[in-house]
Amino acid sequence: MQTSDWQPVLVLLVLVVAGVVLLHALSITVRAVREPLHTGPFSGGLEPREHPLSRFHVRWYPVTMVFLAFDMEMLFMYPWTKVVSAVGTTAVVEMFLFLGVLLAGVGYAWREGAFRWS
């Protein structure tokens, strides 16, 4: 059962990737001028002074930390959904205490202005 569940997924993956490759092939055969046009990046007609690839100023960096905490929490929450009534009240109390602690963290981050930038 387990393997046959995934079999269509695998077939589909192969199929879609083949579709992507076919589309590229189609585009190569039908395009008007085959060799690509080499050009600079667009910003309105003038050239930038440096290569745009750079260490990007990620001002929402603190949010990523808060997000990471919650993302970990989701790992617990998925399996938890399957056992709520089996385990009973304790499961609900524990999960929402945990979420409450994380929410307190969100509150703190909010007060510190982590969700505001610019």
């Binding site: 589909l12 690509p36 046009l37």
Partner: peptide
């Protein structure tokens, strides 16, 4: 599909190509 493709200077073509293809693959 018919138009001539563009390449920007010193671009990472495979990277952009994988990124673009990943979207429909993931959706399907």
């Amino acid at each position: 599909l018919v138009q001539q493709p563009r390449r920007t200077r010193a671009s990472d073509v495979p990277l952009a190509r994988i990124g673009a293809a990943l979207l429909p693959v993931a959706a399907v």
